[in-house]
């Protein structure tokens, strides 16, 4: 149907330290199609962040191959906005780094900010924004460079529950309406179910694919609506069991 934008093939990664070596992933194989929203869940410490670093090309696999078509945008657990830059300057950061800070790109970044409710805060500093707003700014910064794949490493886990539901809602809406491909790491099962088209369950370390599920919520992509959906608890139970197997 669509093109594969990211694929892992039998990937193994070993971390070396003086104390010894840690095999973070081994025999890891999966792929992400264009326009797809994939969530990855796994026990803590199993190698999820490692997987994203591999996907971003920040780590080179010890064995196997990672093939990526296009550019990536990384979003982390903390917003990592630079406190000495205004929100606008923060949004421009990836463009500056990639030397693509054209008037056109600036206009696009500002338009994104306007569209997703940050228009009034462009000249504010991160410290003046709430946690939820900051995370939204971090997403828009990621989108400003127009990446082909979004890599999200537990982007909501530092937020309190209420904010988290709201930001999840926002982020889902933004990613869906921008038609972006996304790979989301989380250890929150309900977050995975409410956001993704497909959920990949990893084993404990070294991380390997244990199960893959395509979620058939039909056309329902709204996280809150999904949570109200009858299938939700079924998925939750299944994933819970698989994660704790």
């Amino acid at each position: 149907m669509k093109d594969t934008i990211l694929s892992f093939e039998d990937v193994k990664l070993i971390y070396h330290t003086v104390r010894g070596e840690t095999v973070a992933t081994e025999g890891l194989t999966f792929s992400v199609e264009e326009g797809e929203f994939v969530a990855i869940i796994g026990p803590s410490g199993c190698g999820k962040s490692t997987l994203l670093s591999l996907a971003a090309g920040l780590l080179t696999p010890s064995e196997g191959t990672v093939v990526r078509r296009g550019s990536v945008g990384y979003m982390l657990q903390r917003d990592e906005l630079f406190p000495w830059r205004t929100i606008e300057k923060n949004l421009f950061l990836p463009l500056e780094v990639k030397k693509k800070l054209t008037p056109d790109a600036k206009r696009r970044a500002r338009a994104l900010a306007e569209k997703y409710g940050l228009g009034d805060f462009l000249q504010s500093y991160p410290a003046q924004l709430s946690g939820g707003m900051r995370q939204r700014a971090a997403l828009i910064r990621t989108l400003a460079a127009e990446p082909d794949v979004l890599l999200l490493d537990e982007p909501f886990s530092a937020l309190d529950y209420q904010t988290r539901l709201n930001v999840t809602q926002d982020v889902s809406e933004i990613i869906r309406s921008e038609g972006k491909t996304a790979l989301l790491i989380t250890h929150d099962i309900s977050e995975a179910i409410s956001l993704a088209d497909r959920v990949i369950v990893l084993t404990g370390r070294p991380a390997r694919v244990a199960h893959v599920h395509t979620l058939d919520f039909g056309a329902v992509t709204d996280p809150l609506r999904r949570r109200e959906n009858g299938q939700f608890s079924g998925w939750f139970e299944l994933l819970w069991k698989e994660l704790n197997a």
Binding site: Y74, Q77, E80, F82, L93, P94, V97, K98, L151
Partner: peptide, 11 residues
């Protein structure tokens, strides 16, 4: 974290 972010942007 910010170093990682910048590296992911290709800095």
């Amino acid at each position: 974290g910010k170093v990682l972010l910048l590296r992911s942007m290709g800095a």
